[in-house]
Write a protein that binds this DNA or RNA. Structure first.
Lengths: 340, 340
DNA sequence: TTGAAAGCGCTAACAA
DNA sequence: TTGTTAGCGCTTTCAA
């Protein structure tokens, strides 16, 4: 029933009574081959149970139409929507997408850059805050890289991002308008740009409202649920008082709320919370999370578009800035003891 | 500063004053080369800024030490933990892992099987309920495939899974012990094995307790949050009464709870809920979700181990069954109107 | 321990 | 429209 497995283009050519070039053409550009010839080839392909060896083709072409999407932490649902956008745009452009997990580890970023150098893939879409410092001054020898969501200071690469500072400022302003003045900030890991930009937005809103800034209200974490829990535990145990939280990720917001609740503090009655990202769980959560929505799908699409440009030889370092939106749901309430 | 980019093994050989074979050996099996020669080669590699073309090597070796992990829906956090297990075991065995998204689409499964046939990867770990039916009778011509979590009836492939039927029965029994008799079941998509097995466990528990079974209490969905919402909306609108829900995924459980709450029905006070998977959000959710924990990391590790065996020529179709655990948290309460 | 040489399967330039 | 042919960069016998 099943024919020989490892048949190659030569066997097919022999079977069809044509040259291997014709087989290749019939398969790659059918309209360049006369219909009768095409039919002979297709029949032979079927008869030989032939599956072209994509590896050989990629090798010959010196490209394999594949890009790697490397994310900070594959456990964060935020990246999955991005992936979908990337994959959609990639499919349209004839590319495949593989997803890699950097696990917040700079070395793993370096490993994946090497994979591109070694032609495992044609390009790398980076969604990690980390970048191997030893590569920073080798910008001209880097393989095709596009940055999404994050930025790497001192590296002029095509980038798609949001205005983190403005989005944060807007979110914190929302808290201030509800009467909050003691606002904690669950930041990302410094000194990454993303963390710093959101932190600056937080400070902007504070100073705009004439509210004093306090170091003690800022805690950093790696955007995970666990980090959110830990941050709140630390804050509470150190006795700092606060009535609102602005978290740099929905996961941290969710961890924070869970921790708060575990200690008998209710959200939003006692403490208001705003997250960041609008992951799919934000809306199903109790209370439904007020958060900053990022246009994830579009971010993915744009990043892939930038990659296609780059792969086609465009050497600019364009930066695309996408809009965000504050999605007001149920995790913010008026401050009960304003100006306490 | 930066040297020529696309240097190849020939240049390095010339630079080092040795043959290309020696360069290859120095890089692949350093101990087969005299230390002085090795040093010459390494110096030349550095000088030429040489990065071996992995594509060429893979092509020559006819294998690339890469496996694809194809999941049903990359948006479900359940798969991310699996991925971590797979990647860990893969790293130890010298393999790379790429993750693909089947989007509940049989055609995309076929596409990925083709990728392996075309040598994009050495093997495929399948976590999809779907399998292209036209390939079912070609088991002997299939590339290396391992099934995880799911099963494909009529296909004898190495598999790692849990005892879905027993786990479900145990979960539903927990509901029954709390006094519930009107228990809805949010099932996966029939006729997939996974959905059927969990459904059978549900029926087992019911009949064991002498509770009658009603078709109307069973609704199917694709394991997503949205499916959970829709299922509950349908149930409520058709006027069926129920006091508990056994959902086939945490995401459906979360969607269900969110929908219930939106309609003023509280969990667990009015309705008790049990989920399946124990995703990372289950514990942070309000109420913390009682659910069936799957040993995801281990499942991933075992699946990869099976793949390594298979790639090493082992041709058995071993099935490994892993243990589950009912994690009791806060989403189940005693039935307030038992035997209503 | 090292080198020469064949060739993995395919694409694409060129010729017919 | 089709065929001939030269490699892509590497690994791996086999011989020295």
């Amino acid at each position: 029933m099943s024919k020989e497995q490892g048949s190659n283009i030569r066997e097919v050519a022999a079977l069809a009574g044509v040259s291997i070039a014709t087989v290749s053409r019939a398969l790659q550009q059918p309209d360049k081959v006369r219909p009768e010839t095409r039919k002979k080839v297709f029949d032979a392909v079927r008869q030989a149970n032939f599956v072209p060896n994509a590896q050989a083709a990629s090798f010959r072409r010196q490209s394999n139409n594949t890009v790697i999407l490397l994310v900070r932490d594959i456990g964060n649902p935020f990246y999955l929507e991005i992936y979908k956008g990337v994959e959609e745009a990639a499919g349209e452009a004839g590319f495949k997408v593989l997803m890699g997990d950097a696990r917040n580890d700079e070395n793993r970023v370096a490993t994946h850059i090497d994979m591109v150098r070694q032609k495992h893939a044609d390009g790398l879409i980076l969604m990690t805050g980390q970048f191997p410092s030893e590569l920073l001054d080798q910008a001209d020898t880097l393989p095709p890289i596009v940055i999404a969501s994050e930025t790497v200071p001192g590296l002029a690469l095509p980038t798609v991002k949001i205005d983190n500072r403005a989005a944060s400022k807007n979110a914190v302003r929302h808290l201030i308008e509800a009467g909050h003045t003691k606002i904690a900030h669950l930041a990302g890991p410094f000194p990454e740009s993303l963390a710093k930009e959101r932190f600056e937005g937080y400070r902007d809103a504070l100073s705009e409202a004439g509210i004093g800034y306090s170091d003690e209200l800022v805690v950093t974490g790696d955007y995970s649920i666990e980090a959110g829990r830990r941050a709140i535990a630390g804050l509470l145990e150190s006795g700092i008082s606060f009535t609102a939280i602005f978290a740099s990720s929905d996961q941290m917001a969710i961890g924070a709320i869970s921790e708060l609740r575990g200690r008998g503090i209710s959200v939003p009655a006692d403490v208001s919370v705003i997250g960041f990202d609008d992951i799919i769980f934000a809306n199903a959560f109790e209370p439904p999370l007020t958060t900053v929505r990022q246009p994830r799908q579009e971010m993915g699409r744009k990043a892939m578009a930038l990659m296609v440009d780059r792969l086609n030889g465009k050497r600019t370092a364009e930066t695309i800035v996408l809009d965000t939106e504050l999605v007001v749901r149920g995790s913010v309430a008026p401050c009960r003891s304003p100006h306490r």
